[in-house]
Nucleic acid binder design. Structure first.
Lengths: 350, 350
DNA sequence: GCGCTTTCAGAAAGCGCTTTCTGGTAAGGT
DNA sequence: ACCTTACCAGAAAGCGCTTTCTGAAAGCGC
C-alpha cells in the first residue's frame, strides 16, 4: 500500500496526497478529506524510511545506557520514554552491558539510523583511547546536525548535559554521617575508571576532610557497579582488620548488595554499621532498614535529557542542568555503636 | 557523505561499492579493500533509511511494554536487549504507561517503521473493542510478513508466544501455602481486565479448591499493578473485618507494596501474616523477609521472545514456549499464627 | 474588464541506497 | 583456436516518499 495508490484512489496527485496527510501546506479541505478517507479505507501506513529519506529527517532518538535491567537506568529510561511520547519521537534503545566499546559501536549504528539525537546515559570512562574513539563518532555526528545529550557524565563533546551533584551530594552525605558521630568510614567504590565514582569519592573525601578525617587506601574497596559487586566488596571489607562504623556505597545498587552481605555476616544495620548509598532508586525505600542515600530525580533526569537535546534553538553552547544532591536520611544510618567494637561474627538479628 | 562519493574515491562504481561494503556478492578482494579504505578515510556512514527503502527490509524490532520503569518489564527488556545485540538488530522501545490505546498506536508506528518484528510484553486486556482494534493493526502487519511475539499474554493473533505458567504456578503456590497450614487467604489482585490477573487468580483458586477452600469476594482486593497499587490494596484489606493468615499478591511488585503496608500496620510477616508474590523479580530477594514467590525466568523470556520472532522458518503455525512456574519458598511465608487472632494494630517489631 | 496577487494542485526531480540485468574478461573444455 | 562457463563490475531502474517548481484558477483593486 503506497501513497500513490491512495492518491489515485482519491483522485488526486501523489503530491497532493502527501500534503493532505502531512498537513504541511494548505490543501482544500474537501480534498484532504478525500485523501484521508482513501488512506483509511486502504489501510495505508506510510513508510517511515521513505519519509526519512525524502525529507532527510527522522524522529527517532537513540538512548544508550549501560544496563536496562538496572533500576537506576530503568528509572531514567522511564523518564526518557515519557518525554519521548510527549514529543512524538521514537526511541531506539541500546544497552552496552557495561562494555565501553559497545557504546561507540552503538553511536555508529544510531548515526546510520540518522537519529535526531543521541542520549548517553551514565558515567563515561576515564580512558584516553576510548574517549578519542567516542569523540571520533560523536563529533562528525554533531557537525552534521545531530544532537547529543549526556546524563550523569562529563561532557567530553559539545553536548547538553544533565549532571547530578555527585560531588556536592557526596560531601553533604559525609557531613550528615559525621554529624551522627561516625569517625571510621569505608567506601564501597565502583570501577575507578568511571567518572561518577571518582566524583562521588572526591566529594565524600572532601566532606570528611572538613572534620579532619581522611580515608586511607584500606578503607576503599572496589567492586563492580552492580548488586553483586556491592556484595563482594562488602565481604572483602569485612575480611579486613579494621572495621568501620559507617559504610558508603557509591551507588544504591551496590549498597543493596552490601546490606545483604552485612545481614549474612550477622551485622546489624544501623546498630553495628551504618550504611548509605547514592541515587535513591525506588527500591531502597523497600529495604529493611530503608537506605539513607543522596537523592537524584532519576525520571526527571531522563525527561530533561531528551528535552534538552530536542529543544529548538540548538544554541552554539551546550546547556548544563545540575540536579539532585539532597541527602535523604533513612533508617540505615544511626549513631555509631557505643564502643565501636561490635566486631566479628555472631551479632544479632537474622 | 554518500556511497557514490566513496565509490568515486575508490575508483569503482556505485554498485560495486555497495557490494564491497555489504559483502553480499563476490567482489575482487583488492577492490573491496579499496572501497573499505575509502569509506574509512571519508568517515562514511551508510544511511539506514536508504538501505531499508532500497532493500525493503530493516533490522529493527519493536518492543512494546507497559512500563520500562517496572522491574518486571525492565528484566524482560534486558533479555530482549541481549538477544538483540547478538542478532544485530536494533530495538525500538515503546512504553504504553499502561494505557491500552497507546499500545495500538505504537503498533501502528512500528508498522510505519517497517519493524521486522513486534514484541508485545505483558498482559493483554480483556476488552473486545481493544482486541479488535489491536488485531486490525496486527493482522495486516503479519500478512505483510511482519513477525509478532508476545510475552505473558494470550495470543489473540497468529503470534509466537512465551507464556508463563500463570495458572499452574499459582496453583502450586496455593498448595505450598496450604501445606504450611493456612486456611484463611486473601488475594491482592490487579486490574481484573488483565488476562494475567485472571489466570493467576484462577490458578490460585484451583489450588485452594483441592483443599476444599474457596475464596469469597471479600478476600480479593483489586489494585493497580504497581507497588502503590499493592500498598493500597493491602490497606484496604486490613480495613476489612476478617483478617487472613496468608496473602497472595498476584505480582511481586504488588506484594512489595503490601509488605510496606503490613509493616506500617505493625503486622509481622510471616509471624502474623504470610505473604507471597509472583514473578520473582530480583528485588524481592533483598526484602526483609525475602518474598516467597513463583519464579519466572524474566530475562530469558525476553531473549526467547525475540529469538522466536526472528527465527528463520516463520512456519505457518505459531510457536508457544511455556516457562517458569516454580514456587520459591522464602522467609515471607510460614505457618499461620497459633490461634489466628493476632489481629489489629500494635504487633511487634517495627 | 485588465493585470495583479494569491491559493492550491500536479509534474518531476531527487533522497541514498540495493539489485537486476547486461556486458566484458579470464578461465576451462575440446 | 573457438566456444562455453564462471565471475566480476557497471548501468540503470527503482524503493516510497517530500518538496520545489510550474501552472491554472480564482480573487481583487482600479
Amino acid at each position: 500500500m503506497t501513497l500513490d495508490v491512495v492518491a489515485r484512489h482519491a483522485g488526486v496527485s501523489l503530491a497532493t496526497a502527501s500534503r493532505a496527510l502531512n498537513g504541511t501546506t494548505r490543501v482544500r479541505d474537501e480534498l484532504r478529506e478525500r485523501v484521508r478517507a482513501a488512506a483509511d479505507l486502504l489501510g495505508y501506513i506510510p513508510n517511515a524510511h521513505a519519509q526519512a529519506l525524502a525529507s532527510s529527517s527522522s524522529n527517532t532518538v537513540g538512548l544508550i545506557c549501560h544496563d536496562v535491567g538496572d533500576p537506576y537506568f530503568a528509572a531514567i529510561a522511564d523518564g526518557v520514554m515519557r518525554a519521548a511520547a510527549e514529543q512524538d519521537v521514537l526511541v531506539m534503545l541500546a544497552s552496552t552491558f557495561r562494555e565501553p566499546a559497545r557504546e561507540i559501536e552503538y553511536v555508529s549504528i544510531l548515526r546510520a539510523q540518522r537519529a535526531r539525537a543521541i542520549l548517553l546515559i551514565g558515567s563515561g570512562f576515564q580512558d584516553r583511547t576510548w574517549e578519542r574513539a567516542l569523540s571520533a563518532e560523536l563529533d562528525p555526528y554533531i557537525r552534521a546536525g545531530g544532537r547529543v545529550a549526556v546524563v550523569s557524565r562529563h561532557r567530553s563533546v559539545r553536548a547538553d548535559a544533565v549532571l547530578p551533584e555527585n560531588r556536592a551530594g557526596a560531601a553533604a552525605l559525609a557531613r550528615a554521617l559525621l554529624a551522627l558521630g561516625h569517625r571510621r568510614f569505608a567506601v564501597l567504590s565502583g570501577p575507578p575508571e568511571l567518572t561518577t565514582v571518582a566524583d562521588r569519592l572526591a566529594g565524600f573525601r572532601e566532606g570528611l576532610a572538613e572534620a579532619g578525617i581522611t580515608l586511607d587506601r584500606d578503607c576503599v574497596v572496589e567492586g563492580a557497579f552492580t548488586r553483586d559487586g556491592g556484595y563482594a566488596a562488602a565481604r572483602e571489607l569485612l575480611a579486613r582488620r579494621a572495621r568501620p562504623t559507617c559504610v558508603f556505597g557509591v551507588t544504591d545498587v551496590m549498597a543493596v548488595g552490601a546490606l545483604a552481605a552485612f545481614r549474612e555476616a550477622g551485622i546489624d544495620v544501623p546498630a553495628d554499621i551504618s550504611l548509605a548509598g547514592f541515587d535513591d532508586i525506588p527500591l531502597v525505600r523497600e529495604l529493611t532498614p530503608p537506605l539513607t542515600t543522596v537523592a537524584l530525580p532519576l525520571t526527571e533526569m531522563g525527561q530533561h535529557a531528551i528535552s534538552l537535546a530536542l529543544r529548538e534553538p540548538h544554541g552554539q553552547r551546550s546547556r548544563v542542568l545540575r540536579v539532585g544532591g539532597e541527602v535523604v536520611v533513612r533508617a540505615s544510618t544511626g549513631p555509631p555503636p557505643p564502643d565501636g567494637t561490635t566486631n566479628s561474627g555472631a551479632g544479632k538479628g537474622i
